[in-house]
Amino acid sequence: MNIRKLSELKTGEKGIIERVTGVGRFRQRLMEMGFVPGAEIVVEKFAPLRNPIEYVLKGYHVSLRHDEAEKVMVRKLEEQTEDH
């Protein structure tokens, strides 16, 4: 299987969320914002200083710090989705 940390995906890459590790408030917040297993997530871009990272999820944009993105496990999708 192709499971890895969300933080390891590069700009434009896509993944399917497997699970969110971490605890308490952080985890709850991610879940309610749509980071649930099966959700598709795309890396939109990195901030100018490489951190945080912007993602597109469920039709909206959200940014996570690198160490937060490390706590989200995704299955990487190989297909090319860039169209610009």
């Binding site: 952080f26 917040r29 991610l30 914002m33 945080p52 909206y60 944009h61 959200v62 940014s63 710090r65």
Partner: peptide, 10 residues
Amino acid sequence: IAPFVLELPP
């Protein structure tokens, strides 16, 4: 530490 998780609205 509060989670950063920041929405970037259009």
